[in-house]
C-alpha cells in the first residue's frame, strides 16, 4: 500500500474557536477510511481543508507527495481529489443527466468549447450514462435535479463526486437523512464503486455498525483533534473512544 494523501499539522480556527487542532493524517491508496466523531468534532472542516473549500491557518496537505495546501479547488479536482456534500449541493435547474455531464466534460477538457453541441461528445455521453447506471438514476435522466427526492439527490451527489474520476474521493455523510433500507443500499453502492473503480474513499458516517463493517480504517475525531486512528478492531478497544461515546451504546458495550 502506498501513501496517497498526507496531512501535516493542520490548524484552522474560526473567530478564536479552534476547529482543527494540529491534525496529522495519512490515507493509503485503495482503502476505505471512515471518519467518525461527535457533532462539532471537525470532520467536515477537515474535509473542507483537504479539498480546498477553505484554507488552513497552518499545516500542509500533500497528494502523492506534491504539496496542494493552497491550490484552488478546481486544480485539486484535476489532481484527483473530489468530494460530495453533507447538504446536497447539486445543480437544481439542470437535468440529472446534465449534472453528471458537466464534471465529465470538465474532466475530458471540453467544458470551454463554445459552439459545439454538448450532446455530441460521444465519449462524454458514454461516461455519463455509465455513471448514471452505476448510481441508478438513468431512468430519471431528463428530470430537473431539483425535483428529485431526497434519496435520489444523495445518489446524484455520489455520482457527481465520482464523475471527475478521482483517485481520492471524500463523501461527507452520504447517507444523511436516509431511512435504514436506503442507507444500506448506498453503502453497498459505495463498496461496489470502490471495488469496481479501484477508488479510495474517505467517508463521514454516523452509524457505528456500518462503520465497523465496511471500513478498512477508522479515524475518530473529537474537539478538532484526532483521538484515535486504526483498524475497526483497534478502535473498538480504544479507551478514549469508549469514553466519548459512553452511554450511547454505539460500540455495543454499554
Amino acid at each position: 500500500m502506498t501513501g496517497l494523501l498526507r496531512v501535516e499539522g493542520l490548524i484552522k480556527s474560526f473567530d478564536g474557536f479552534l476547529a482543527i487542532n494540529r491534525v496529522d493524517l495519512q490515507i493509503q491508496a485503495g482503502t476505505l477510511t471512515s471518519i467518525i466523531g461527535p457533532n462539532g468534532a471537525g470532520k467536515t472542516t477537515l474535509i473542507n481543508l483537504i479539498t480546498g473549500k477553505i484554507n488552513p491557518d497552518a499545516g500542509r496537505v500533500y497528494l502523492d507527495e506534491i504539496e496542494i495546501t493552497r491550490l484552488p479547488i478546481h486544480e485539486r479536482v484535476r489532481k484527483g481529489i473530489s468530494r460530495s456534500f453533507q447538504i446536497s449541493n447539486i445543480f437544481p435547474r439542470l437535468t440529472v443527466f446534465q449534472n453528471i455531464q458537466l464534471p465529465v466534460l470538465a474532466r475530458l477538457g471540453y467544458a470551454a468549447f463554445p459552439l459545439a453541441s454538448r450532446d455530441k461528445f460521444s465519449q462524454a455521453n458514454a461516461e455519463v450514462e455509465e455513471i448514471m447506471h452505476a448510481v441508478g438514476l438513468w431512468g430519471k435522466k431528463d428530470q430537473p435535479a431539483g425535483v428529485l427526492s431526497h434519496g435520489d439527490q444523495r445518489l446524484l451527489e455520489i455520482g457527481m463526486a465520482i464523475a471527475p474520476r478521482p483517485r481520492l474521493c471524500f463523501l461527507d455523510e452520504p447517507c444523511a437523512g436516509m431511512n435504514p433500507v436506503e442507507h444500506g443500499q448506498v453503502l453497498d453502492l459505495i463498496m461496489h464503486l470502490a471495488q469496481e473503480r479501484n477508488l479510495t474513499f474517505v467517508i463521514v458516517e454516523h452509524d457505528m455498525d456500518v462503520v465497523f463493517a465496511v471500513s478498512d480504517r477508522v479515524v475518530v475525531m473529537n474537539k478538532g483533534e484526532i483521538l484515535a486512528d486504526g483498524t475497526p478492531d483497534m478502535i473498538k478497544q480504544h479507551e478514549g473512544v469508549r469514553e466519548i461515546y459512553l452511554g450511547e451504546d454505539v460500540l455495543g458495550y454499554a
Partner: peptide
C-alpha cells in the same frame, strides 16, 4: 455547448462547478 452548461452550473451552484474541476 459545454460552455453554456458550465455557465448555467455557475448560476445554480458555483461551488459545485469548482468541485467539477
Amino acid at each position: 455547448s459545454p460552455l453554456g452548461l458550465a455557465l448555467q452550473g455557475i448560476r445554480d451552484s458555483e461551488q459545485r462547478v469548482a468541485f467539477s474541476g
